[in-house]
Amino acid sequence: MILLRTLLLGILLVFLLPAGLSVLFWELGEHPGSWREADWSSAAIVPAATAEDTAAVYVLAARTGGLKGALSEHSWIVLKPRGAARYERFDKVGWGSPIRRNGYAADGRWYSNTPRVVARLEGEAAERAIPKVRAAIESYPFATRGGYRIFPGPNSNSFVAHVLRAVPDLGAVLPPAAVGRDFPVDGRLVTLDAEARELRASLFGYAGLAIGARSGLELQFLGLVAGIDPFRGLLKVPGFGSLSVFG
């Protein structure tokens, strides 16, 4: 009984309390009432495609809309082959075709929220990675119509996390607030990634953990992530995401 109470108290303090505060702060802010009122225009955070002749790969993420935005982000992938005149953007969405190509500006705001770059490759490294990224997109097992579930996944973040794991050259993991990133799209509940030096375990996205060079130490519960990344000086707080406190 004492162990159960301690566990419940830990869940309350580590996961539910921060998440509740994040919802409160979100509600105090101003947000568009619907997707029609939201700003989806370019945030101008990546170079114009014609400005550089080099190849590029970006992974971007931004807070999503409605109350979900208090706890979750949406992520997507952007490619530009060498010499291309425009970017290609790939999103997994819950409406229409699940993997949408060029549905929005490469660095477009998501429900008026400005995105940020999660991963970036340029030049020769991007040229080598682009075929691998395309292959990972093509191999995503939930790419057909109907292959989307907002929680625990597979969703938009499950798709991008799949690509990041398939292409370790990108050298990144999705932010803690990317709910759905830990859904095991390959069906494996425990994964040891020797190349990325990561051990991951997930109970179908409802609970899990990750430990390694890219994630630090993470505990996951109902899509919320708490943890510490001593390599980058980050504290991971449910709802709030990664906070820089050590560097």
Rank of each mutant, 00 (worst) to 15 (best):
91 D>W: 00
111 Y>C: 08
69 G>S: 07
115 P>H: 08
109 R>A: 13
93 V>C: 01
105 A>M: 06
93 V>F: 02
67 L>A: 15
73 E>R: 15
85 A>L: 13
109 R>D: 11
109 R>Q: 15
89 R>A: 11
108 G>R: 07
100 R>Y: 02
109 R>S: 13
71 L>A: 07
67 L>N: 10
107 D>G: 13
118 V>T: 10
90 F>N: 02
67 L>I: 15
98 P>Q: 08
68 K>I: 03
96 G>M: 06
80 K>Y: 11
69 G>N: 04
69 G>V: 04
98 P>H: 04
88 E>K: 05
81 P>L: 04
92 K>W: 01
109 R>T: 14
117 V>G: 04
100 R>E: 12
102 N>L: 02
109 R>C: 13
104 Y>H: 14
74 H>E: 00
87 Y>K: 05
77 I>Y: 06
98 P>N: 14
112 S>E: 10
69 G>E: 08
103 G>Y: 00
67 L>K: 07
76 W>F: 03
105 A>T: 09
72 S>D: 03
90 F>L: 06
71 L>F: 09
108 G>K: 06
90 F>D: 01
86 R>L: 14
68 K>S: 15
87 Y>W: 11
78 V>Q: 03
80 K>S: 08
101 R>S: 08
94 G>E: 10
78 V>F: 03
83 G>F: 05
77 I>K: 08
82 R>I: 10
67 L>D: 10
69 G>C: 09
86 R>G: 15
86 R>K: 15
74 H>R: 08
108 G>F: 03
84 A>F: 06
97 S>V: 12
68 K>F: 15
